[in-house]
Design a binder for these strands. Structure first.
Length: 258
DNA sequence: CCCTATGATTCCGT
DNA sequence: ACGGAATCATAGGG
């Protein structure tokens, strides 16, 4: 009713609308019809983390995204159409009224402006809820926590061997991480995650890991012994244990119940 | 179904 | 950018 001067300037406060538009575009909802969407989704999946390109999950995600996109487009179209219809309807009414009373073009313009603002606020809502839906979808499918799989036994074996044989400084270098990742067929960041988790959990409850520590200490001791027995030089294979970081589990071969 | 183990993410300090 | 800590979400075993 009272926004006459706002009729011409509709831009200034709509930073949020910009954000919504940008996000919809980036997510492939409002952009190009088909190929763009999947490309954006793939990029999103790739950037979202470790994503070993699970195409089964991924196609599911894409299907849902397409669904969202279709809904969005049909709704948008519906709103647009409704807006136009309503506008022409109002125009007709005004035209009819102009027979009984004078109606300035300014008034018509004002009415049209009001209608358009109303409908664009509805569009805004639509965009917002679409964004929300996309975010939920993303968190549902792209969050790697939701499809966590344990590493296989051999991989954890290798990782544990490294951890317990470097217990004094269980911080593998970049190269070491790469090598471990290669041996375990996991990514470097997964190796980093594993060591991060292992360090904190070991430190938090050393007692719980005592048995495991002893086991791996024994295992590496055995392999070292066999190596030195086989080879000629008695080189302790990069195991200068018990320096600074974590308390050594101090292997006790015949630790029994009292 | 509950509980623990575990991989991944987030927050924060450095 | 990396590591510690807390937390999330699922896997796995009883």
């Amino acid at each position: 009713v009272l926004s006459i001067r706002g009729a011409q300037e509709e831009e200034p406060p709509d930073a949020q609308l910009m954000r919504l538009d940008n996000m919809l575009l980036a997510e492939g909802v409002s952009g190009p019809e088909k190929g763009g969407g999947s490309a954006a989704a793939a990029a999103a999946a790739a950037s979202a983390g470790v994503g070993p390109d699970n195409s089964a999950e991924h196609s599911d995600y894409r299907a849902k995204l397409t669904q969202i996109r279709q809904i969005y487009h049909t709704e948008l179209e519906k709103y647009e159409q409704a807006c136009n219809e309503f506008t022409t309807h109002v125009m007709n009414l005004l035209r009819e009224q102009s027979r009984t009373r004078p109606i300035s073009p300014k008034e018509i313009e004002r009415m049209v402006g009001i209608i358009h603002r109303k409908f664009s606020s509805i569009q805004m809502q639509l965009k917002q809820s679409t964004c929300e839906a996309v975010m939920i979808l993303r968190s549902r499918f792209l969050d790697a926590r939701r499809k966590r799989r344990n590493f296989n036994k051999q991989a954890t074996e290798i990782l544990n061997e490294y951890f317990y044989s470097h217990l004094s400084n269980p911080y593998p270098s970049e190269e070491a991480k790469e090598e471990l990742g290669k041996k375990c067929s996991i990514t470097v960041s997964q190796v980093s995650n594993w060591f991060g988790n292992k360090r904190i959990r070991y430190k938090k409850n050393i007692g719980k890991f005592q048995e495991e520590a002893n086991m791996y200490a024994a295992k590496t001791a055995v392999s070292a012994a066999s190596v030195s027995a086989h080879g000629s030089q008695a080189n302790s294979p990069s195991t200068p244990n018990s320096a600074g970081g974590y308390p050594s589990p101090c292997y006790q071969p015949d630790r029994r119940i009292q």
